[in-house]
């Protein structure tokens, strides 16, 4: 079984400050890390690898230095790493990014599960995971906090067109999906894409042998020409999102605390809610 984990290299936001003049992030000198939510995605992939003897491939789309993030994933135990990188991809929004990543995943062909972190800590959109599944036309389960069951039958691998409606329970995943009120249990045929939340596991630390392996591991590099992408759908041109303005929201004003006996306070509150300032 092949598992694909999509990761993103992000600036360590605990160290990022905002330039008060330009309202943009001060990125210089800030350490880059693997998006923390993606660490849970990698860990879940590695646990499934131990359980099913699966192969874990890690993909990232980003600038050349994102290779560091891939090497870190290898030091943790990932088998293979692919860097999707090209100047033509620059300026991609979540639509273009998920389109491009889906094309890279299609190039890998043989996969049963795609795992993403629920969102990246720099953009916080939570759109790329679901976007990839839409572009690949495979089911998705977002905000997964536990994989309850997973069954994998190799003969069905890669087949997904018809088997989806009538799938026998040969190849499926059953997962707990976190919601605001509680959780849902969702079953889906494979291949499927899941996004994971931090409750799902505790990421491991790298091993020394893993770090040594990562140092010399070969990382595949795919450019736009290596992927079957429509040039109009990638990079800035392929991105429907237009950033009109970036600003720091004004700090929230302090609330008002009403004091007095309950009757008095409730009257005041009703007036306030009605918009009649006392």
């Amino acid at each position: 079984m092949n598992i694909i984990v999509c990761i993103k290299q992000v600036p360590d936001t605990t160290e990022v400050r905002i330039d008060p003049e330009t309202n943009t992030l001060i990125r210089s000198g800030v350490r880059c890390i693997i998006n923390p939510f993606d660490m849970y995605a990698i860990e879940e992939g590695l646990r499934l690898k131990d359980k099913f003897e699966a192969r874990v491939t890690v993909i990232t789309m980003g600038p050349p230095q994102a290779e560091e993030a891939l090497r870190e994933a290898i030091s943790l135990g990932a088998d293979e790493a692919i860097l999707v990188s090209d100047r033509l991809f620059a300026g991609s929004d979540t639509w273009a990014t998920s389109y491009t990543l889906s094309k890279a995943i299609q190039k890998i062909k043989d996969y049963s599960l795609v795992i993403c972190g629920k969102q990246a800590i720099d953009g916080d959109t939570a759109q790329v995971g679901p976007g990839i599944s839409a572009h690949l036309d495979i089911p998705q389960i977002t905000y997964v906090k536990k994989i309850e069951e997973m069954c994998f039958n190799s003969t069905e691998n890669g087949e997904r067109s018809e088997s989806r409606a009538t799938h026998s329970r040969d190849s499926y995943i059953k997962a707990e999906r976190m919601t605001e009120e509680g959780y849902e249990i969702i079953e889906s045929p494979l291949p499927c894409l899941i996004t994971v939340v931090k409750e799902i596991n505790e990421p491991r630390l790298p091993s020394l042998k893993g770090k040594m392996k990562a140092k010399s591991a070969g990382i595949k590099k795919w450019e736009a020409k290596d992927l079957d992408v429509d040039p109009d759908l990638i990079g800035l041109n392929g991105s429907p999102t237009k950033v009109v303005k970036i600003f720091t929201p004004p700090p929230r004003k302090g609330g008002q605390i009403l004091q007095g006996d309950p009757e008095e306070v409730s009257e005041k509150l009703v007036d306030l809610l009605k918009g009649e300032i006392p």
Binding site: R204, L205, P206, S207, L208, K209, M212
Partner: peptide, 19 residues
């Protein structure tokens, strides 16, 4: 955690499983 990270093998020869 220390064992999984290979720290117990850092002073042992490779042929005996160390680094």
């Amino acid at each position: 955690v220390m064992g999984d990270s290979d720290l117990f093998g850092i002073y042992i020869e490779e042929k005996y499983g160390g680094t």
